[in-house]
Nucleic acid binder design. Sequence first.
DNA 1: GTGGTCTAGACCACC
DNA 2: GTGGTCTAGACCACA
Lengths: 124, 124, 124, 124
Amino acid sequence: MSVDFNANIPIYVQVMNDIQRKIVKGTYRPNDKIESVRDLAIQYGVNPNTIQRALQELEREGLLRSERTTGRFICDDPERIQLCRKNLAAQFAEEYLRNVNSIGMTAEEGMDLLKEASRNRRKE
Amino acid sequence: MSVDFNANIPIYVQVMNDIQRKIVKGTYRPNDKIESVRDLAIQYGVNPNTIQRALQELEREGLLRSERTTGRFICDDPERIQLCRKNLAAQFAEEYLRNVNSIGMTAEEGMDLLKEASRNRRKE
Amino acid sequence: MSVDFNANIPIYVQVMNDIQRKIVKGTYRPNDKIESVRDLAIQYGVNPNTIQRALQELEREGLLRSERTTGRFICDDPERIQLCRKNLAAQFAEEYLRNVNSIGMTAEEGMDLLKEASRNRRKE
Amino acid sequence: MSVDFNANIPIYVQVMNDIQRKIVKGTYRPNDKIESVRDLAIQYGVNPNTIQRALQELEREGLLRSERTTGRFICDDPERIQLCRKNLAAQFAEEYLRNVNSIGMTAEEGMDLLKEASRNRRKE
DNA sequence: GTGGTCTAGACCACC
DNA sequence: GTGGTCTAGACCACA
């Protein structure tokens, strides 16, 4: 649920991804006002500048828009969000296939592997 | 096939992953002698220090062993390599499930997505 | 025709420019009564404070005068308005020359460029 | 030649524009190494972070590329730079036409105005 | 109170 | 020495 700050990946990217996923998942809905930079900084336990940067990147991607002095808002175009969701999903699948392929597995083996992993997950 | 150096991931990690995958994939076979640091540096087009570090990490994981004067060799224990392969594969699957989940997809949807991506790949 | 609120330029400046241009263009004629702050706020879709500030600046420039209880009026001196128009025009030309110059174009090339842009505009 | 810091425009944008123009103008040539962030910060008399941001934006536009630990380089694709130059020029012309139009001048009057301004400039 | 900009200063991995 | 990240803290215009 929360974000780990252990990794090699810059914090602002982690925050960015987290928010992006909340948008495409629907946790944030189109046209919602997002929390202020300062509030998000407290929530994530990082510096406001770090949040600022994450939000700027999302703005550039068109998932957010900022209205000066009133706050930042989730993009109000559901299609754009859906497109982003599809892109993300395709990206995940592509990465997975590339990964299994790189260790000499066919896509079919990759599918079986996934089924098993999925079963294991359910048990936990 | 080759390694991208655009990414944010340190080059030595990219090299390390590439070699690791060649080992579990069988491109390098158990007990094979691996190319010299100097040769690998030329192959990958990077600084020898970078190769050095990548190989050190692989040694630490037990996939390589170095013999002082004769060079570095692939681990001669096929089981260890198989284990590593399984671990990698499980890791990939786990990551994929975590990803699709984070954008509100079930494992089933993830499977379908994968099938489609797999079909698209074949066409290319 | 209308005013964009995307830009980085403060809204009150945008409004100010818009009104100023309407004055020098003749949309507002000398001695005309301008709409009330409240009405302009509705027209532009912004906060009345924003309009208030824009009008104050125009007063300072002498293009408007306010009469306490009856409202604000366009300056009644046509010469003053003409002067303002010339200044604006010269400012535009100066800026354009500075711009093309900064990317290594001569004034002549700038003229040609303009002709072409003018043709393209007409087509749209 | 130098950059003014009076304006309302953020410093990083001013720096960005200045460098962009030097690139399209040819002051920086394709594949040139640009000065380090620290050096540019001294040259422009601003904080290194400010330079950092300006360069990042230029990278995003594809005019620069950064190679970790070795420095930043001007884009090595002359076509891309030419394209950028044309875009800038068209943008300037478009802006000028919009401006003169907004005060009720035709494109022809705008051309004449420009000729005059150009003559005045030469005299200075 | 909001987003935006800027500074000063620090630390890091990489080469 | 290079780019990159992050923090802490400040100030500003805007509504």
